[in-house]
Amino acid sequence: MSARAVDPRRDPIQPGPTDPVTITFEGREYVGVRGQSVAGVLLANNVLDWRTTSTRHEPRGLFCGIGVCFDCVVTVDGQRDVRACQRTARDGAQVERQHDELPRRVEEAGS
């Protein structure tokens, strides 16, 4: 276990009751706390990577956490380029990995 939610029983802020929120990522359901971002729900479930890069095909996820780096973009309910750290998770949101292959050259035209 690495990334995780703070255990409410040990949290010094003495959290009150919360509501769950459930999102789907790559076909699996993940439960978080209502009010969390998409990135928050994934991290709370120890999911660290949700994007694949175009050139080296490497995994990426949260980096700056404040909406600046755009490394954490995902597709949410069919809409691309959504920063997971900025978008509040809604119940039932369908989150998909974003992986854009570089275009292949259009073969010699007219042939």
């Binding site: 175009s54 380029d81 854009d100 275009p103 259009v106």
Partner: peptide, 9 residues
């Protein structure tokens, strides 16, 4: 932004 290849010419 980068997107899947959908415009070819």
């Amino acid at each position: 932004t980068r997107m899947p290849h959908r415009v070819f010419r």
